[in-house]
Design a protein around this nucleic acid. Structure first.
Length: 514
RNA sequence: CGCAGGAUGGAGCAGCUUGGUAGCUCGUCAGGCUCAUAACCUGAAGGUCGUUGGUUCAAAUCCAACUCCUGCACCCA
């Protein structure tokens, strides 16, 4: 049986992790975890793009070998993943042998098939920036300092015959209207394809760039960017091997909207098609996190969010919850300290954490720490029970269609309903009256069952906290929700030690203002 | 220029495909409760749904025009 194969974009090794990297990993991880809860076998790939001009430059500036720099950066990114509970199965690095081999075999194959040709490239070259520059990079008619003087230069390079497949791609997109989601992104691609494509320059002479994968048919060149980076999706799962098809075609590429056009929506399908490899099934282009007020985050504005700060202070689940709850997948969203703390305090600490707290406390005080058996349900219980049943149905559907914000919204509605139920039944009052034992027992059992269901449904989004809730309810972790339904699973279970799930964070000034 | 997205009570959003009393979270105000992380519950105030025009018995929702914000192949999720 083929795995559900999901990839993220691979991060570029010239830089440190920011909220965009963190978000993409969380989104991908939540998708994977929700599929696993549905009982689907999955393969989850992420990784690092290590070649290129910038990495070479940065390494030189720091007086390091490029590979050593990449090793350090890889550690940073893997640490971010581990701090965010990202359950990837494989981490690909483009300097790995398994990757280089596949890139070269792809290039060789396409070269032999006549899809790659050599041609002169003429353009304006900046010696200082060591690259070709474009007229539109001029500022007020002058070249900026980092570019300096430019000269017209002609250079031989290799080109991939992208343009000949333009018609094919347009037709493909017409036939596969759900290839790119959200759908308006696919419309953008179609629009882009109304202009004629140029062939894709895929090489750099080693005189200018050494840090790359050598062209198998010309040792004077390395391949540049896309033929290197995109190929990770197939190199990592063993393109050319028998077991390649256990994973390929990928079910979903999760990427940011910035690398949809042209890289993933144009170059990648055409590269695969030209090489005779099946296309991925779907591409999800997510939006960007904007700073307060909808400004773009940038170092110069000083409004960049460092995800690790939030993770350190509030925990990985709080970060995961915020980004999944706040962003409608595909759209842009704002990230601000105010919005974050509102979600943390209002949803996680008050609605969820406090509900668990009060319930565990009551079970301990009124039932000797053991969940009682529910008596036949009254109207209040039926209302809660119906609500929970409906929530299970809705949430599974929302996860399936990648509507995480809506899924989480539903779960928290159930939690609010449970808080309301507690208020109506008031177990603390029942406990003080004799002859109300049945009502008390039913109330505690019902609250516990609602919370159990909520916790299981929360697993893809906040795996650690979800498991902790189950532990406090006296239950083991669950690996799928195929049979999830209102039940008596809590009967007689002994509540675990109660620790505060999402403690109030008092230090308002602990983080630098955004 | 063109294309795409957005414009909904103080803030952040949903609703728009398949027109029919404008919804959610936070905030504000008043009240309740006391099992709980000063938490939980109830109620209230607050919006002519960017502008103008059209279709319709009826428009946030469909159509047209316009305004403003954002993005559009160096890099960047």
């Amino acid at each position: 049986m083929k795995n559900f194969y999901l990839t993220t974009a691979i991060d570029y090794a010239n830089g440190s992790p920011h909220i965009g990297h963190a978000y993409e990993k969380v989104l991908a991880d939540a998708i994977i975890r929700s599929r696993r809860m549905e009982g689907v076998n999955c393969h989850f790939l992420t990784g690092l793009d290590e070649h290129g001009q910038k990495v070479q430059e940065t390494a030189t500036q720091r007086g390091m070998a490029p590979q050593d720099l990449c090793d350090l950066v890889a550690q940073d990114f893997q640490k971010l993943c581990s701090r965010l509970s990202i359950a990837y199965d494989d981490y690909v690095r483009t300097t790995q042998l398994r990757h280089r081999t596949v890139v070269q075999s792809m290039l060789l194959r396409l070269h032999a098939a006549g899809e790659i040709y050599k041609a002169p490239y003429r353009g304006l070259y900046s010696t200082r920036a060591e690259r070709f520059v474009l007229e539109r990079e001029r500022v007020d008619g002058k070249w900026p300092d980092d570019i300096g003087d430019v000269v017209e230069l002609e250079e031989e390079n290799y080109f991939f015959k992208l343009s000949r497949y333009q018609g094919w791609l347009v037709e493909f997109l017409q036939k596969n209207v759900n290839f790119i989601i959200p759908s308006f992104r696919q419309r953008q691609v179609v629009e882009f394809l109304k202009e004629p494509l140029n062939d894709l320059c895929i090489s750099r002479p080693k005189a200018r760039l050494r840090w790359g994968i050598e062209l198998p048919f010309d040792a004077g060149y390395v391949t540049y960017v896309w033929f290197d980076a995109l190929v990770n999706y197939i190199s990592a799962v063993g393109y050319g091997r028998e077991d390649f098809f256990r994973n390929w075609p990928a079910d979903l590429h999760v990427i940011g909207k910035d690398i949809l056009v042209p890289a993933h929506a144009v170059y990648w399908p055409i590269i695969l098609h030209a090489a005779g490899v099946e296309l991925p099934k779907q591409i999800l282009a997510h939006g960007w996190w904007l700073a307060k007020g909808g400004e773009k985050m940038s170092k110069s504005l000083g409004n960049v969010v460092k995800p690790l700060d939030y993770i350190d202070l509030y925990g990985p689940d709080a970060f995961r919850y915020f980004v999944l709850r706040e962003m409608a997948v595909g759209q842009d969203s704002n990230f601000s300290h105010e919005l974050f703390t509102a979600r943390y305090q209002g949803d996680l600490a008050n609605d969820l954490g406090n509900l668990l707290s009060r319930l565990v406390h009551m079970v301990r005080c009124y039932a000797d720490g053991r969940f009682p058996t529910a008596w036949p349900a009254g109207p209040e219980e039926l209302q809660l029970q119906n609500r929970a049943t409906e929530t299970i149905r809705l949430v599974r559907a929302f996860y399936q269609s990648l509507e995480f914000s809506s899924a989480l919204g539903e779960i928290f509605s159930l939690l609010q309903e449970t808080n309301r139920y507690a208020e109506r039944r008031a177990p603390w009052k029942l406990a003080k009256r004799a002859s109300c034992e049945r009502e008390l027992e039913t109330a505690l059992a019902s609250m516990g069952e609602a919370l159990r269901i909520a916790a299981i449904l929360l697993t893809p989004a906040i795996p650690t906290a979800a498991q902790e809730i189950l532990r406090q309810l006296g239950l083991p972790a669950v690996s799928n929700w195929l049979d999830l339904a209102w039940s008596n699973a809590l009967d007689g279970k002994v509540v675990g030690e109660g620790t505060i799930l999402f403690p109030r964070v008092e230090e308002a000034g602990a983080l630098s203002p955004l």
